[in-house]
C-alpha cells in the first residue's frame, strides 16, 4: 500500500474533515457565547466614579 494514497482515500478524508468541521463549529459556538457573556458582564458592571 502506497503511503501517499492515504490522502486520496475519500472515506478517510471525509471522516477527518467531518471531525474537524464538527469541532470547529462547536468552537465557533463557544466563542460566540464567550463574547456574549463578556458583553453582558460589561453591561451590568457598576459605573466608574468620576474623579
Amino acid at each position: 500500500m502506497n503511503e501517499m494514497n492515504a490522502m486520496f482515500h475519500r472515506h478517510l478524508v471525509a471522516a477527518y474533515a467531518a471531525a474537524w468541521i464538527i469541532q470547529l463549529t462547536y468552537l465557533g459556538y463557544v466563542v460566540r457565547k464567550w463574547i456574549g457573556a463578556r458583553k453582558a458582564q460589561q453591561a451590568t458592571r457598576e459605573p466608574q466614579q468620576p474623579r
Binding site: V30, W34, A37, A40, A43
Partner: peptide
C-alpha cells in the same frame, strides 16, 4: 473557554 463564558454569564445574571 466554555467554562469561562458560563462563569461570566452567571456573574452577569
Amino acid at each position: 473557554l466554555r467554562y469561562s463564558a458560563e462563569r461570566r454569564q452567571q456573574m452577569a445574571d
